[in-house]
């Protein structure tokens, strides 16, 4: 069979074998046996996230609803679409040179797939806030924060906070009326922090009111600082899930 020959040709050579480790489902000779199923996990980069075997009840859609996994998927999707947007965006908003806003207009008018990617980024961001909320609720109702998972719940609350901050810092970037005033409402509240209110607001805004330096500041927070911190906490979150004995339950 020509098909068979092609498969052998592709798989049976030095380069292919160097890429796919023994047990990989893409390697020549993978068989659907217990041994190879175990190796498929063990010899895969995913072994950092998944053990060889998982509790059967964890597979049921109604246990996790995939919410944690989907939050992570949305985070990845937002990173990819966000990088695309960065190619066409300048965080500048000086009077008369509001490049940020003009770039957003150009994005939909003259960039191939520009509007689509922006939509994906926008709706994906809202969806991620939503799935993270729901994930937290499902974890609570399963009592999945009980020992030994207490600390992972705390890590989770920090992740929730980081997700909100990511979303909120992104909200300002289009530099339209919606962005400016939504952020004004939000940051006014922070100005009421006891004792340090004015200082907090000054640091957040990079000045006394929202202006070009706020935009630059929030841009850096949005595309670099908060994602960086989030990735670190995600790593801890995933690592703890495994060290705490995998998914909780069954109830």
């Amino acid at each position: 069979m020509a098909n068979k020959d092609l498969k052998t040709t592709v798989q049976d050579n030095v380069i292919w074998r160097s890429i796919f480790r023994p047990g990989s489902i893409y390697r020549k000779g993978y068989r659907d046996t217990s041994r190879d199923r175990a190796l498929a996990s063990m010899n895969n980069v995913l072994y950092h996230l998944h053990p060889v075997k998982v509790k059967r009840h964890g597979l049921k859609l109604t246990y996790t609803y995939c919410l944690g996994g989907l939050s992570f998927f949305l985070f990845i999707l937002l990173t990819v679409t966000g990088i695309f947007l960065m190619f066409f965006y300048t965080p500048a908003a000086g009077a008369g040179t509001e490049l940020a806003y003009l770039n957003m207009r150009e994005l939909s008018a003259s960039v191939t797939f520009g509007q689509l990617v922006r939509n994906l980024h926008r709706w994906g961001a809202h969806a991620m806030v939503f799935t993270v909320f729901l994930h937290m609720a499902r974890v609570f109702y399963h009592g999945a924060y009980k020992p030994p998972r207490e600390f992972n719940w705390v890590v989770g609350v920090i992740l929730l906070l980081l997700t909100l901050l990511l979303s909120f810092t992104g909200y300002l970037l289009p530099w339209d009326q919606l962005a400016l005033w939504a952020v004004t409402v939000g940051t006014n509240m922070m100005g009421y922090t006891p004792v340090f209110g004015d200082q907090v607001q000054f640091v957040l805004l990079g000045g006394l009111e929202i202006g070009p330096s706020t935009l630059l500041r929030w841009y850096v927070l949005h595309v670099l600082f908060i994602p960086f911190v989030t990735v670190i906490f995600l790593a801890v979150h995933f690592w703890r899930i495994r060290k705490d004995g995998g998914i909780s339950g069954p109830l």
């Binding site: 908003a93 509001e98 689509l116 939509n119 994906l120 969806a127 339209d176 919606l178 400016l180 009111e209």
Partner: peptide, 18 residues
């Protein structure tokens, strides 16, 4: 998400005006 993004555009208001 892809279907939603195809039919629904993210909002963009008028230029920010303090």
């Amino acid at each position: 998400l892809l279907v939603m993004s195809f039919f629904l555009d993210a909002p963009l208001g008028s230029l920010a005006n303090p």
